[in-house]
């Protein structure tokens, strides 16, 4: 067992992990942050996307011990300080960007990573960026629409 410390959603946390402990296991089982989902567990589906040092990262394909000292943001860190939904989360609600909701944490985290680097993406750029996020309900149109809306763009004609 090795001790790891990292900053998760602004709080310093630490715990004991094995070499094989994945970041998603540390988050869900170690810290009780169950918002991050494991979908495929093979790095295809993107339900487990979190930010590690600001970069979208598949937490099911990252060892916790290698995140020692990192800044991690999960879906739980996306709400406003008063607990209300953050801008991207609110856009997902407003535009019905989720059906079953399983992929949503990863979708929101990927969207946040995209908008950080590219604040006004085109619809094509949004779709390209979501290559690694699979929605089994196939709700992509409204997901794209929500992300366009979160970027402050007119979505009256987008994704139709």
């Amino acid at each position: 067992m090795t001790k790891v410390s990292m900053t998760v959603n602004g709080k310093t946390v630490s715990g004991e992990v094995e070499g094989r402990t994945l970041l998603v296991e540390f988050l869900r089982e170690g810290l009780g942050l169950t918002g991050t989902h494991v979908g495929c567990d093979t790095s295809q589906c993107g339900a487990c996307v979190v930010h590690v040092n600001g970069e979208a990262t598949k937490s099911c394909t990252t060892f916790a011990s290698l995140c020692d000292g990192a800044e991690v943001t999960t879906i739980e860190g996306m709400a406003n300080p008063d607990g209300s939904l953050g801008k991207i989360q609110q856009a997902f609600q407003d535009h019905h960007g989720l059906q079953c909701g399983f992929c949503t944490p990863g979708m929101v985290m990927s969207a946040a990573a995209l908008l950080k680097d590219n604040p006004k993406p085109t619809e094509a750029e949004v779709r390209h960026y979501l290559d690694g996020n699979i929605c089994r309900c196939t709700g992509y149109h409204n997901i794209v629409k929500a992300i366009m809306a979160a970027s402050g763009q007119d979505v009256s004609i987008a994704a139709e």
Partner: peptide
């Protein structure tokens, strides 16, 4: 290559 999260690692 892959997708954005893959390219980050």
């Amino acid at each position: 290559i892959g997708d954005p999260a893959v390219r980050n690692r």
